[in-house]
């Protein structure tokens, strides 16, 4: 059964068509990877799905119900949560307090604090509960983004480039966490730039270029798709 359905979404910023008639669906329990070159419209797509930006046309359905026009906080409470590509900072709160706020989505305060500590420990930030997010390393900030999402007890997580800027070795920890999450029943949609990562993680992939969907399939199918190769490596010049 499709948990998330994106139907003919277009998004226009003034004269710029950032998304043009994009459609795909996400099955319950899968890891869907969304790839595309810089500026292809991946983050815009996430903003539309998660309620931060209304689409110019088209609709999004979650769990069979239309969610276009619903505010991001309500979507999070309904089980659809996103992370941010640009890591979000909090000037005067500790990581534990930030993740506790996320945990309050579905839990009473005392339980939320314990649960937040458990989630932070699970992503590997157990020793940094009292640190302020601004002082964390880039890798830890990315892990905090994941922890915030997990603490809301979602059905579906939209991860926006949680591996970007990390070394290959550093991507191991988040990859392991995302797999475990997926095994516990959480559906994952991830935008990623790091091709080796997404190739290993995704069960299925959607490719976007210039705001349009240009390909869809398993990772093996995608790397053989000529349009995808053209989009990523440029067209062949030899004729």
């Amino acid at each position: 059964m499709a948990l998330l359905e994106v139907d003919n979404i277009s998004k226009r910023f003034g004269g710029l068509l950032a998304l043009n008639d994009v459609s795909f669906s996400v099955e319950k329990g899968e890891i869907l990877g969304i790839i595309g070159p810089n500026g292809a419209g991946k983050t815009t797509l996430f903003s539309v799905i998660s309620g931060f930006a209304p689409p110019s046309s088209g609709e999004v359905r979650f769990d069979g119900q239309r969610i276009t026009g619903i505010s991001p906080d309500r979507l999070t409470r309904r089980g659809l949560v996103r992370s941010f590509q640009l890591v979000q900072t909090f000037a005067d709160m500790t990581t534990l307090e930030v993740v506790t706020t996320a945990a309050l989505t579905r839990r009473p305060i005392r339980e939320a604090i314990d649960y937040a500590a458990a989630v932070l420990t699970r992503v590997g930030l157990g020793g940094k509960l009292d640190e302020t997010p601004a002082t964390l390393s880039l890798q830890d900030k990315k892990l905090l983004e994941v922890a915030k999402c997990v603490a809301t007890d979602p059905q579906c997580i939209l991860l926006d480039e949680v591996m970007a800027g990390l070394t290959m070795a550093e991507t191991e920890a988040p990859m392991q966490i995302i797999r475990e999450l997926n095994q516990s029943g959480v559906t994952i949609v991830m935008v990623e730039h790091v091709m080796p990562v997404i190739m290993r993680m995704a069960t299925r992939m959607v490719v976007i270029n210039f705001g349009e969907k240009i390909g869809e399939g398993t990772p093996d199918e995608i790397i053989k798709d000529q349009r995808v190769i053209d989009a990523y490596f440029g067209e062949h010049l030899d004729a």
Binding site: F52, S71, R82, F84, Q88, F90, K148, C149
Partner: peptide, 12 residues
């Protein structure tokens, strides 16, 4: 500290 991020984690 961060209104947009607050919304994303379910804060009304």
């Amino acid at each position: 500290d961060n209104e947009k991020a607050a919304q994303a984690i379910g804060v009304n």
